[in-house]
Design a binder for these strands. Sequence first.
DNA 1: GACTCGTGGTG
DNA 2: TCACCAAGAGT
Length: 353
Amino acid sequence: MRDHAVYPEILSQDLLEWYDRHARQMPWRVGPEARAAGVRPDPYRIWLSEVMLQQTTVAAVKDYFERFTRRWPTVSDLAAAADADVMAEWAGLGYYARARNLLKCARVVADDLSGVFPDTYEGLIALPGIGPYTAAAISAIAFDRPETVLDGNVERVMARLHDEHAPLPGVKPVLKDHAAHLTPALRPGDYAQAVMDLGATICTPKSPACGICPWRTPCRARLNGTAAELPKKTPKKPKPTRHGFVYIARNHEGDWLMERRPDKGLLGGMLGWPGSDWNEAPTEAPPFEANWQDLGAEVRHTFTHFHLILQVRMAELPAGFNLSDGQEIIKRHDFRPSDLPTVMRKAFDLLHR
DNA sequence: GACTCGTGGTG
DNA sequence: TCACCAAGAGT
């Protein structure tokens, strides 16, 4: 048997051979036949997909990616888009700072870099919304540079391959070091995608399919029977529950009173309903005095670090209402629930149940 | 290093 | 039902 610990390039080759047989088709990937014909990945599409894939599943991203690239085929098209259009198109995908930084980045590339993405890690990580993972992923996948990607998949695969029991995030540098030693000089872009595919399909968080894993022989955790319990993570804080009110108002023409949320903070830059703060004991904060009707049902929604229970109130918007800061009237025919972040769309959904 | 920042799928 | 999880970044 070959000694994998001494010859990491043998592991890389084994994984690339597995990848050539099992690579999944994705809208942003260049298939083997196109690749053979000389087609290179489009940096714009790789960048867009990688930003969308941050903490987000491939299944959730696919439709958004298709809509974005159909509407804005190049980075210059995206750079010229209106902020509100981009935020509306991103609605429902979550982590809205990604959309704001996406637009910032597109404008830097279009305005300052002649519409050409940097092809190095250093050039890429200087851009808004591109951190250590995404800079490595773009330079590897789009430009075939030997950078090492370290995402949740790679962390899990490396923790198991080397049977590392120290908890994340502390052990991250060690896992990164393991991953770096395996990154091959040949086909580093395919290799990066291969490790992540391995983590997503074989070396899964629960009940990994070790029996069919291309690295089943060298894997130390499989040898020790600890694969399913790795990687260890430091325990998270429990989520508190917060409460609040939102107020949905329409005028005689059926137009809606809404609010553009400030760029910083939760749901930043997104459209939503006027409402109260969200905390343990909310106080009503209607945008105008009226006989607000209780919808008799509540919105339950869970964010990253708290649960939310919203009471939804409804009233008619008086004629001649003066908009205050951040408020907008959305014309009846311009209103689309799909432009709203999910928690706000849930409140809207209560209107017709 | 510790927080903040969404959403939908899954066991 | 509910905690965990997903191709993390910014502060």
